[in-house]
Design a protein around this nucleic acid. Structure first.
Ligand SMILES: [Mn+2]
Ligand SMILES: [Mn+2]
Ligand SMILES: [Zn+2]
Ligand SMILES: [Zn+2]
Lengths: 143, 143
DNA sequence: TCATTTTTGATACGGCTTATCAATTTCAAC
DNA sequence: GTTGAAATTGATAAGCCGTATCAAAAATGA
């Protein structure tokens, strides 16, 4: 049984339901993706260049977006490039980002979430999504 | 005494401190900018085309970025284009954004801010900036 | 195997913003 | 008010990141 059997199953389910095909590239990219917490398309392109030098960047983008549709990934626009967040085994969370070294720390805080709902309803809004990112220096970079 | 004398003073101070010059374009753009809460460079370009058809888009971008450095504006990346937020007479705030009509509502919530600090320090971070955006439907768009 | 449909990879394109650079304007010193 | 160094402007090229295009290749299932 492969290391990522469960997620591979999620992907195959999604493919089956949408008349999409299971390809060598999709398998390769999923395997690499699941080893990461956050990764950009470009980073993955360079990583995978060793395993398959002919894998195109467009395929990486297409496939990571496919993972988003399948619920395995989520696109996050932190800096200039899109980070694909591996949410296969995680619920909702927000991020702390170090402006020094780029380190990303995940966190959840129900109190903040609840206050967000309060702010929204006070203004007559119904929240669909939100983004909360805290930018600053990690302990290592502060010194 | 002009309507925007105070902000014009802030701009002139900044110019003086940085060996920059006071130009007709900068005055024109500041006047238009201060009448808005949030505006994109493109929107301002079209608005000002009537007053000065030769005003270039690059000048608008440059000048809005200058206002950011002078502390009069703040760039916010809500959607595809950058919104320049008029903060000349406002403190820090976050935003509710309607995904239906694009309406933007500003809010402040010290409790959220305090919890953010807690999360950060618990993780060894010192916050420099943050972004909090709540996306959803306003009361009008919900019905 | 065969036929149909989807996918892939190379690359052109597009939206938004900044860089480039010659011509113009500002402004402080005469 | 002239002058001249320095900054600014406007037109447009370039850059970045991601998507669209399309012919060739691969996958599916009858
Ligand atoms: Mn994450
Ligand atoms: Mn605002
Ligand atoms: Zn760091
Ligand atoms: Zn609305």
């Amino acid at each position: 049984m492969s290391k990522h059997a469960k997620e591979m199953g999620v992907l195959k389910d999604h493919l089956g339901k949408h008349q999409l095909k299971f390809t060598r590239q999709r398998e390769l990219i999923l395997d690499a993706f699941l080893k990461q917490e956050h990764i950009t398309a470009e980073e993955m392109y360079h990583q995978l260049a060793r395993k398959d030098p002919h894998l195109g960047l467009a395929t990486i983008y297409r496939t990571l977006n496919l993972f988003c549709e399948a619920g395995l990934a989520q696109a996050r626009h932190f800096g200039t490039q899109t980070q694909y967040d591996n949410i296969s085994h995680k619920g909702h969370h927000d991020h702390l980002i170090c402006t020094g070294c780029g380190k990303i720390v995940e966190f959840e805080n129900c109190d903040i979430e609840r206050l967000q709902e309060e702010v929204a309803s006070r203004n007559g809004f119904t929240i669909q999504t939100h983004r909360l990112e805290l930018y600053g220096l990690c302990s290592r970079c502060r010194h």
